[in-house]
Amino acid sequence: MNDTPALRIADLRKSYDHPVLHGLSLTIPAGQLYALLGPNGAGKTTTLRIVTGLLQPDGGRVEVFGHDIAREPLAARAMTAWLPDEPMIYDKLTPAEYLAFVAGLWRMDPTEARAGAEHLLRWLDLWDQRDTRCEGFSRGMKQKVALAGALIHRPRLLILDEPLTGLDATMARAVKDALRAEVDAGATVIITTHILEVAERMADRIGIIANGTLLAEGTLDDLRALAGPGEATLEDTFIRLTEAAARG
């Protein structure tokens, strides 16, 4: 079995007008659903945007399945999908047209892409709307279209920033099921979320960052153990760790 991690981040640094990432290091094994947690401004989105090549780091190294994103950006991007909290879709395209466009960007074989699009549209319950422009869709529908776009090129690493924000319970369940199915099929999924219950229920491993550094990482049980004896929840652990980090 190949032991190359899905994502390896070493000493990642980034500043805007103030430092955001202070030498963040993180390794995420392949085939897991990883939840990256942290308070607002912790550096979660900045980290993910660097991994997807949308931001240049000031220093450090990032590898996606062994491909250094600085040296082999196209190879890294070819196996990565990025789903930000605001869906990257075109309001005037239909879901089917959007998928065709994304498949073209990832240079998929048209026959394979068409079959994949049909499967995804049916699976995400978008089939009846496949030829309807996205402009009238609800936020949840748009998020599903964007998710289909992220999945159509069969990424090995799927990165989602707050994927459940603004979704109703049914939509949120559909997205969660889709992500779990991807992991079961061998993909690696990284999500950021403010809903700790989602991380608690879904994630194989959880990382907590604050002030641009990794505070703790492990399975849910590992993190609970960090909170000390008793029936600590992830929320207790999260608050205890982040407050301690805030106090310095």
Binding site: D91, P110, R114, E118
Partner: peptide, 20 residues
């Protein structure tokens, strides 16, 4: 800015998947 329903393909997908 309501969506207008285009004529939906009876079967399959009408969108064009480009080769390049």
């Amino acid at each position: 800015s309501p969506a207008r329903r285009r004529r939906t393909a009876k079967t399959g997908i009408s969108a064009r998947f480009a080769r390049s």
